[in-house]
Design a protein around this nucleic acid. Structure first.
Length: 351
DNA sequence: CGCGTTTGACCTGCGC
DNA sequence: GCGCAGGTCAAACGCG
């Protein structure tokens, strides 16, 4: 509904390279990346299935990892859902993935973010400093107190044509809602993905229920809010389209699943799926980790002309002597340019 | 009928 | 304190 499906297309531009940016001050931020060009890069930078097999290599990433290695590992272990990966790869609308951004939020991140992709954009500054919080105001599966029902009142009011009474009763009811002022709203760590896709809601192996949609300031594309439908699982995700690059979908996950992916269970892949709770879609894992686990699937992820957007430069047909992969730093810079392009308000001019 | 989406209203936090 | 914008709720609605 919302976005007219990738129609905007255009702005794509040069979206090569990958992100492996990690930053920490008092908080954590990770930006992994993935696209067709960077698959090899992941291989270059990290041994498959090594302890941090899922880490993004290169740069100063490694030295930044230790404090968060467990979290990252947990996240990325969760990526290893072959069924989800396979299904994702089967989806014709998904062109390729651009990045994932593991971020943590405290209450500061809940509002007032940068215009446009707040979730992802607000955390893309390399020097950002956000505390890692693992609690949520809704607690483990605990929903906030529900508001009183309004329907009965509405019906009665409508029947009697007493709009004022309805309004009063509604407001009075809301006033009865206990307000937890002392408990500051806290967020669970978030993970944002930038995904090249024509569809907003990407299949990720979990079942989601949409519970809201909001217009995003300075963006023609609305933001959709989803919640995991599994009982006691409070994982949420937000899906929005980048207004700078309409072909890019920003998916932000919040919380950790307390269950396996239904898709992985159906596909009999549970044995491959690490039991670690995590919020991330299995198909959005760093490619090297995927390859380490499923080399067969990895082959599917290599550049394929049919998987490129019109705006994407045509894939290089391997010449008899294929050119060596570009230096890693080159990826870094092109990626940073992309991030600047996507989130100009949050990216410093120079890395 | 069950489940998921749509949509308007309301809540909440933050900046000015 | 006020206004704005993000986030959430829940009735209404649609679909299989």
């Amino acid at each position: 509904m919302s976005s007219g499906g990738g129609g905007g297309g255009g702005g794509g531009g040069d979206h090569h390279g990958f992100y492996n940016h990690l930053a920490r001050g008092d908080g954590a931020e990770y930006v992994f990346g993935s696209n067709s060009d960077m698959l090899e890069s992941f291989f270059f930078n990290q041994p498959p299935a090594s302890g941090g097999g899922s880490r993004a290599g290169g740069g100063g990433a490694d030295e930044l990892m230790p404090p968060y290695s467990s979290s990252i590992t947990d996240y990325l272990q969760g990526f290893l859902d072959p069924s989800g990966l396979a299904r994702h790869l089967d989806a014709p609308t998904v062109k390729h993935e651009l990045s994932l951004d593991v971020m943590s939020h405290d209450s500061q991140g809940t509002s007032g973010g940068a215009a446009g992709g707040e979730g992802a954009a607000a955390q893309l500054t390399p020097n950002s400093s956000v505390s890692l919080s693992s609690s949520d105001r809704e607690g483990e599966g605990g929903q906030p107190p529900r508001r009183c029902k309004k329907k009965a009142e509405d019906d009665v009011a409508a029947a009697e044509g007493e709009e004022k009474d309805q309004e009063n009763s509604t407001k009075a009811c809301r006033n009865n809602k206990p307000k937890k002022k002392a408990e500051k709203r806290q967020r669970q760590p978030r993970v944002a993905f930038l995904t090249k896709s024509e569809v907003d809601h990407l299949e990720d192996g979990y079942r989601w229920r949409k519970y809201g949609q909001k217009a995003v300031k300075n963006s023609p594309y609305p933001r959709s809010y989803y919640r995991c439908t599994t009982p006691k699982c409070g994982v949420k995700k937000r899906v929005e389209r980048s207004y700078q690059d309409p072909s890019t979908v920003i998916t932000t996950y919040e919380g950790q699943h307390t269950h396996h992916s239904p898709a992985s269970l159906r596909a009999g892949g549970a044995h491959l799926f690490m039991p670690t709770a995590h919020p991330l879609p299995p198909h959005l894992m760093p490619s090297s980790a995927a390859a380490a686990f499923r080399p067969d699937l990895m082959a599917m992820m290599h550049p394929n002309p049919s998987m490129f957007l019109p705006s994407m430069p045509p894939p290089q047909i391997p010449a008899p002597s294929p050119p060596p992969p570009p230096p890693l730093q080159q990826h870094h810079f092109s990626d940073y340019a992309l991030l600047q392009d996507l989130f100009p308000s949050t990216m410093p001019n120079n890395p």
